[in-house]
Amino acid sequence: MNTRFSPLSEFTTPQQRFGASDRLDCWLEEQAFLAHFNLRGDPQHSDFLEVLDEQIGLRLPLVANTVSVSQQWRSCWLGPDEWLLLGPKSKELPETLMAGLNGMHYSLVDLSGGQTVIRIGGPAWRDVLGSACTLDLHPRTFEAGRCAQTVLAHSNVLLIHVDADERGEALDIVVRRSFADHLLRWLIDAAMEVGFELHRPRT
């Protein structure tokens, strides 16, 4: 069995926890080895939507910058004909999905090795993001069910609002593998002021 390494599995920093006071108002962790699939297809084509619903129980979000969730998969709007499917660790998609899509103009590309997710939470996560993010992340505008692609610390990312984490409201940042180290380094620097804890990757 060959060892696999997630994009941030070798990340090192002098401090896993940092805060001058007792307060650590932000935590970060890698959500490693999730299944990432980039899906493209024509949402005007009703069969296309139906196949996804039937095969993996997913209703693709058709409203820009929103997320839909099924039992196993999260599907994020990336464009009018493009979605990111984020799934369980066993990244196999059912063969029947491919079979169902066969004959349609679609594209389903595995990006599981090329992306990872940094989850950031804690009471001060919005302030940490604010140091790099030009989006309006105020709860009035960025709430459950929302996602947004943007540029964070020179890196193209997808932000996904997380309301299902047992530790409270959080944010998933989907980032390309080669930018992950830079982005996490930046976030940690930005989080020093509020105090942070870097958790071990969740795998």
Binding site: R40, G41, Y106, S107, V109, L111, G113, G114, Q115, S178
Partner: peptide, 13 residues
Amino acid sequence: LKVFLTSVTDHWS
């Protein structure tokens, strides 16, 4: 033209 593009630079070593 019916063509979809996806960047996979980071997925492959």
